[in-house]
């Protein structure tokens, strides 16, 4: 089978799975609805309760889950290749800590600004993620030649710890209700009530995915080593910068939409590699699609398992992801 054909078949299979999950998920909930009825155009909209629940109450949340899941999984793949470390996550380089600090500040300072209908918390978290990205980038590219992946890693881990300290400090100064609201945000949640936040995050994610699409073969070479990639014709400096910036931008946009939902960016790429091998031309799109389905399913569990109580989806992914991560670590060593 030709390589092109193999890529097409595998990616189509993952796409079919993701689409099936995303059509099925909105039908599940406290009120079960009929898919046939929801899509029945002969019933007037105001009489079609199933359609209203499907399109207004549940679909935005499922789409948000799909978008965030796809983005975090794809960003995870890119950063793992860039850092040549399968244990890296989209949050390893400080993006989520910056975003959390931004959200925390927005909550405690009672920022009420809104740009184009986007409220202060997603705005501030996106700004925080950009700030963290800029700091790590500046530190790592102060090296003479390209980005030093070691400096990237150290700067990211240190920035994570430093921002966490700042978050705790701000939290300490905040009152109880504010602190609770911020903590709730940091648990991650896809409680999206309209299509608007999705549309707002979409441009950043689309731009990043366009960059991802261009670099899949380069990621194969980068993961073999920078020097080796350079000798095979990769413009290392350009490739590393593009990978880091696009992955960080996408992660920042996803976190502003769903909060820092952990473990998606590591579990999904690993499961996908177990299924399809290591070639990034397959791993990257398959991870994005599988990530979408995976987060939508986790969110489905989050809103149905203890219904009417809703578990934060970040808690669900962490409960699955934590043990999985440890298993991975033991398996590798």
């Amino acid at each position: 089978m030709s390589i092109r054909r193999r890529i097409a078949i595998v990616v189509s299979a993952f796409a079919a799975f993701a689409i099936a999950v995303m059509i099925w998920a909105p039908t599940v909930g406290t009120t079960s609805i009929s898919l046939a009825r929801a899509f029945d155009r002969s019933i007037p909209w105001h009489d079609n309760v199933d359609a209203q629940i499907f399109f207004v109450a549940r679909l935005p949340r499922v789409l948000a889950g799909g978008l965030v899941g796809a983005t975090l999984a794809a960003a995870g793949v890119v950063l793992q290749a860039l850092l040549r470390n399968p244990l890296a996550t989209p949050f390893t380089l400080g993006v989520s800590a910056g975003a959390s600090l931004g959200a925390m500040l927005a909550v405690t300072m009672r920022l009420e600004l809104s740009v184009l209908g986007i409220t202060s918390i997603p705005l501030a978290s996106f700004a925080g993620s950009l700030l963290a990205t800029a700091i790590v980038y500046a530190l790592a590219s102060s090296q003479r030649r390209g980005l030093s992946t070691n400096v990237l890693l150290l700067a990211g881990v240190t920035l994570n710890a430093f921002f966490s300290a700042l978050i705790l400090f701000v939290q300490y100064l905040a009152d109880f209700a504010e602190a609770l609201r911020a903590i709730r945000w940091m648990m991650g949640g896809l409680d999206v009530a309209s299509y608007f936040p999705i549309v707002a995050a979409l441009p950043f994610i689309v731009i990043s995915f366009a960059a991802f699409a261009m670099m899949t073969r380069t990621l194969n070479l980068l993961s073999v080593g920078a020097e080796a990639a350079a000798s095979r014709g990769v413009e290392i400096v350009k490739a590393q910068r593009l990978a880091f910036v696009s992955a960080s931008l996408a992660t920042g946009a996803a976190v502003s939409l769903g909060g820092p939902i952990g473990f998606i960016g590591i579990i999904v790429p690993h499961l996908v590699r177990l299924m399809v091998g290591a070639d990034h031309r397959i791993v990257l799109p398959a991870s994005a699609l599988f990530g979408a389905a995976f987060l939508v399913l986790c969110d489905l569990a989050a809103r149905t398992l203890m219904s009417p109580l809703e578990i934060p989806v970040g808690v669900v992914t962490a409960l699955i992801g934590g043990p999985f991560f440890l298993w991975l670590l033991v398996k590798r060593s």
Partner: peptide
């Protein structure tokens, strides 16, 4: 083309995939 001292992979590629990377 360069053959480096040692090649250590971060991910599990097959031999043919490594050789095809030469076509980059």
């Amino acid at each position: 083309a360069v053959v480096p001292q040692e090649t250590e992979l971060a991910f599990e590629y097959r031999a043919i995939e490594i050789v095809l990377m030469g076509r980059h």
